[in-house]
Amino acid sequence: MSANDPFARLPEAASFTVTSTTVANGAAWPPEQFSSGVPGGKDVSPQLSWSGAPEGTRSYAVTVYDLDAPTGSGFWHWAVADIPATVTELPEGAGDDTGSGLPDGAFQLPNDVRQARFVGAAPPAGHGVHRYFVVVHALDVESIGVPADATPAFLGFAMAGHTLGRAVLVATAGTPATSESAERIEVSRLVPAPADAVFAVLTDPKGHVDIDASGMLMDAEGHPVQRPGDRFLVHMDREALGDFPLGRYDVEVVITKLVPGEEIAWTVEGQFRPYVRHIYGYRLEPAEGGTLVTSYYDWSEVDEEWRRRVVFPVISESALKATLGILERTVRRRAAA
């Protein structure tokens, strides 16, 4: 990654010291500081202690920023404002959903997944090592005066003229481009609806027909699914794609994972053995303005016989994106019915 300085075009400020029992400067984040969407990740904010702030400091702010995220603007993982000047430490886990470890008067701003809490590292597989700038900002005002729903970038703009000093610690994280990570596609979309409304479509067999972007799903039979192992029947028409002369046939959808309101995944059992064993799924996360829905397709456990027959993935990233758009439309229509 580039060695660019995130403070290069900001007003100069004195330096002071920040340390952490969670991670050393320049070292990799422990697993707990990764996103809960990463195996072992728990979205636990780091412990921080600081000292030597400039004279005249009247409050602090803390930010955690991934400069190397492939967004064009980096990625804000955490932002805390209005920490009293008498406070020089935050315990590990202070940045949970309720800000349980924050001092009176301090508050968390929504991060780049629009959650007012700490969200852990999740660098894309094979994208290299990312740098996470953990910064304590010493300010010359007791309150920086930004609204609780402001973005971290707006906080930074407001702090520019009030920053006396910065204490900086840099942590790192990377996700190797393993064969498993290379055999999975994920796309996300903010759906302006509550998670239960989205989940109602995904657990309804006919909902699967409603959101199909391929044109293959003709109809479905069965009750809404409630737990892993539940099944329903789908009537297919391969002629809609014009690729394989399979005509009309039926498959069974088998639920492999179901966490109400949070995640659903399934595989398909058709007329050929062995079964393919690729996985389709959705993860749902509350977000400002609705629900962040992530659609994924995983072919890491596909039977070797099928790998010799078919080139995977059999579904493209653009098709997953199209399905998310249709999902949003379906949720809206059902709400209006």
Rank of each mutant, 00 (worst) to 15 (best):
A122F: 10
Q115H: 03
V119F: 09
A106I: 00
A160I: 01
E180M: 08
G165H: 02
T203D: 02
A125G: 13
F157C: 04
V136W: 13
D196G: 02
P194F: 00
A158L: 10
L202V: 07
V134S: 14
G156K: 10
P192E: 05
M159Y: 02
E142V: 09
E142D: 10
Q115A: 08
R184C: 13
T178R: 12
F199Y: 06
F107I: 05
V135A: 14
D204A: 11
G156W: 03
D112G: 07
L202A: 05
H162L: 09
P147C: 05
D97E: 14
V119Q: 15
V187S: 04
P147D: 14
V170I: 15
F107M: 12
G174W: 06
A153C: 00
M159S: 07
V136K: 13
P205Y: 02
F107Y: 14
P152H: 04
V168R: 10
A148R: 15
V113M: 10
R166S: 04
A138I: 03
G120A: 12
T175F: 02
G99N: 03
G120E: 12
G165Q: 04
V129A: 15
G174M: 13
A160N: 10
F133S: 13
A160H: 07
T178H: 11
A182C: 11
V198C: 00
A148N: 06
A125R: 13
L139F: 06
F133C: 09
I144T: 04
T175P: 01
A106C: 04
G207R: 08
P147A: 13
R114A: 12
P103M: 10
R184K: 15
G126Q: 09
G99M: 08
V170K: 11
R117C: 07
H208F: 04
L109R: 05
A158Y: 06
V201N: 05
G101Y: 01
F118L: 07
A125I: 03
D149L: 08
R184V: 12
G126S: 10
L155I: 03
P205W: 02
H137Y: 15
L190K: 02
A116I: 01
I185T: 08
L169A: 06
F199G: 00
V146P: 07
P124K: 14
T98V: 06
G99V: 00
G161A: 15
T178K: 10
K206I: 00
G156R: 09
V119P: 00
A200K: 12
G207Y: 02
P192R: 11
S100G: 04
M159C: 13
T163H: 09
P147I: 06
D149R: 12
V129C: 10
G156E: 01
A106N: 02
E183C: 14
Q108L: 11
G128M: 09
P205R: 04
L190P: 03
R117T: 09
H127G: 11
I185D: 12
D149V: 05
G165I: 00
